[in-house]
Design a protein around this nucleic acid. Structure first.
Lengths: 182, 182
DNA sequence: GAGGCCATCTTGTCAATGGCAAGTTAAAGT
DNA sequence: ACTTTAACTTGCCATTGACAAGATGGCCTC
């Protein structure tokens, strides 16, 4: 109904992407199988190939969608730098499957035009969030900010953080980011 | 010759781990195939199963080895906090394959005793590196430090950083970490 | 030194997967 | 009505991970 016309299935492209997100959120990207997605959508095993070409094609679409969602999340975060960082972490937690694909370029075609456009947009939003603070040059601040939120999100998602950090990732992230920008 | 006795092959266990590191350093963890490793070692396709049980078993051994290497790298880094952080990044760059597996617990058995022991050891070395500095409590400092070095390493490995950062990851990491601990 | 034991590795097989080729269905245009 | 074309199916093949059963060869004991 939304972007590809409704034929036999309705909106298979979206259904496959949604199913992929669901599977990966539970079992990680390694557990993804095109045939399983097709089964969940109630179509034949070769149907996904029509929409995405191959597995990398599906993950490319997912990565593009992820960068768009990230840009949206950063755009809604307001002007404060710490809020932007917390929004980055919140996006990673809430859209775990997207996030995990986005930063694994060996899984998809990172030079895809849609991916490049969405990634550029998200990157600029992230950088403008840091623009007004200065220290050793804005580049260093931006890189440090990106590193600390990306690292925190990654560590949280991988389960590497000790329980002592607490159950609320965004609250913990706020504390950590404030340590960088007091 | 080193740990498993030399029978038909010599030291198949080590050969398979080395081949796995080589493959993953080039093409990422998704490209890993037990049969390919067996081919490279010149043994039959079922030989790896004897040493590692299954694919997760091989990656478990690789993760344990990785945490040991990380502990070693951190131990050699000296007392300075920034040096410890740079050593963390240096480890991630130099042992990319290990690093990428270590923080992807869906790929291996993270509760394996050897893995737990090595990870605990590395974790303590990382935390003692931060111990002497205090700010909002050592926990926050340790978490911030870990996040920033882990995030920088991850972003560098994924190729997400702009070329402007320069060609030397450890030099750039030093600048970024110094931003957190001036 | 003969026989047994066991770690090491091989051969054979099976289900599942990704990807390709060729055919089928049905909506949409002319 | 006829054609075109997107959307999907059926059938196939090579590769892979995992398992079962067998072969090989060093080591140990009596």
């Amino acid at each position: 109904m939304t972007q590809s016309r409704a034929y036999h299935h309705g909106d298979l492209r979206r259904a496959l992407l949604d199913a992929a997100v669901e599977v990966m959120a539970e079992s990680g990207p390694a557990a993804l199988s095109l045939r399983d997605l097709a089964r969940r959508a109630g179509v034949s095993h070769a149907a996904p190939a029509h929409h995405f070409g191959d597995k990398a094609g599906l993950l490319t679409a997912l990565a593009a969608q992820g960068f768009e969602l990230l840009a949206e999340a950063l755009g809604n975060a307001g002007d404060d730098l710490v809020d932007t960082g917390v929004a980055y972490v919140g996006f990673a937690i809430r859209h775990r499957a997207h996030f995990e694909v986005m930063f694994r370029p060996d899984l998809y075609r990172a030079d895809d035009p849609e991916v490049v456009a969405a990634r550029t947009r998200a990157g600029e939003l992230l950088r403008t969030g840091v623009a007004r603070r200065t220290g050793r040059g804005p580049d260093v601040d931006a890189l440090a900010a990106w590193s600390i939120v990306h690292g925190f999100a990654t560590l949280w998602l991988s389960g590497a953080l000790p329980p002592r950090v607490g159950p609320d990732p965004e609250a913990a992230a706020r504390t950590v980011i404030s340590r960088l920008f007091p």
